[in-house]
Design a protein around this nucleic acid. Structure first.
Lengths: 228, 228
DNA sequence: ACATAATGACTGACCAGTCAGTCAGTATGT
DNA sequence: ACATACTGACTGACTGGTCAGTCATTATGT
């Protein structure tokens, strides 16, 4: 019989500190906690670099440790195992996006201005940051982490899509966009995703101006309602 | 443990392949060649399954062999190594697409009919076949195989994009679509790609009707020129 | 002094790739 | 027709290197 996971002889679940509650009468010193948080960050950052360039399976925890300026064992003080490190990484980077997007939907501005903001937000907060790599990782490896895919769908995607639907329906009611769009909000995001994939695979052969492409796309989509 | 001599202990009598009766009076080398080709196919097919479900690194050649009904050593008679197997797989599956797409560009039909054909082609020849998995693999793993990415760009993508540009410019000259589209043919394909990614990650939470989405998208794009 | 954090050498699973051995099918000799 | 030798496609046990995860030991902070 084969083992469930290759290369993992995990038996004893390890208790982590950090995220778990700290109710006791033992207040850790501020400096200590700050240092601890900094280490955690360093490990996550190093992990992102390694996972991004080699992929989840091929990335070596030894390298993550070296890059983070930490011994390998230290990683296990902060994360249960390799998989857990990977999942935490993606969670930590993508969770903040939701609030930002939802905030956009709250304001009731004309669709043109909103679209402009959306493109800016994507380029500035995703495409030009390491979040681009996180999304690439999600795309590449997500399939092998069903729990992560579920988290991402539930906590991030479905909420963004929901927000988009609200926005698009409102705009459709005003005649600013066609009804069809509200049914497939994915269409709005599609060029952004394509740009992320393109940049990873083909940038060196032919570069792609994301901002320009997204603007062109949105203009095409909205043009359908400009001549009532 | 029966290890009398190193590398010798043969125990199980070999069972030859099942249905290999030579019915005809022609035991020509034709049969051999056909058998050889069939084996190659079996290995490629098994490899696609394994690579698709576990990813390149995690896929075991032992499993590929088992699935193909072949011993591991046999794989090495047909392919140099694991990486080579992977690359051949992608090449073999995607190369035929180019001709089909280029043929579409040759005929000078109205853009509406052409768009319809394009969607049908994508759904029938990619989305509903194993080519979908191959493209998913290309997206997921391509970054770690620069040679493969280059091949794909040079032999597949750039030609498809070139064809699309010709088509779109022609349509733009007739006023059927806006100029902007010809600059970013990627936009046309974007929903298709998104659908492939979506199906792998989130299908189980929310299904997505590719055909409908692509048609909606194209309709939105073309609508911009319907009211001058 | 004590608790907690950090270290890194070590272990055992794991797997790509190898190669000595096997045998169905073919060719040659009588 | 029959026997004997030859061929090479195929096999799978084995090796060597890799790496996730462990834990006895050492360092650091209060």
């Amino acid at each position: 019989m084969t083992t469930a996971h290759p290369r993992s002889a995990r038996k004893t679940p390890r208790r982590r500190r950090g995220a778990t509650h700290r109710p006791g009468p033992k207040p850790l010193s501020k400096a200590r906690e700050a240092r601890s948080a900094a280490r955690r960050e360093a490990i996550l950052s190093a992990a992102l670099d390694e996972f991004s360039s080699r992929g989840f399976e091929a990335a070596r925890l030894d390298d993550v440790a070296k890059r983070a300026g930490v011994a390998k064992g230290t990683i296990y003080l902060y994360f249960r195992d390799k998989e857990s490190l990977f999942q935490e990484l993606i969670r930590a980077m993508l969770t903040p996006l939701v609030g930002t997007i939802e905030a956009l939907g709250a304001a009731d501005v004309p669709i043109n201005a909103l679209a402009e903001q959306l493109v800016e937000l994507f380029v500035r907060e995703v495409y030009e940051t390491r979040r681009k790599d996180v999304i690439r990782l999600m795309i590449s490896e997500g399939r092998r982490f069903p729990k992560l895919a579920e988290f991402y769908y539930r906590e991030v995607l479905s909420r963004i899509i929901g927000t988009m639907r609200v926005i698009l329906r409102r705009a459709a009611a005003r005649g600013e966009v066609s009804q069809g769009l509200a049914e497939f909000p994915q269409i709005i995001a599609a060029p952004g995703l394509v740009a992320i994939i393109w940049s990873g695979l083909f940038e060196r052969f032919e570069s792609l101006d994301v901002r320009k492409m997204m603007k062109a796309h949105i203009e095409l989509l909205f043009a359908s309602r400009r001549a009532p």
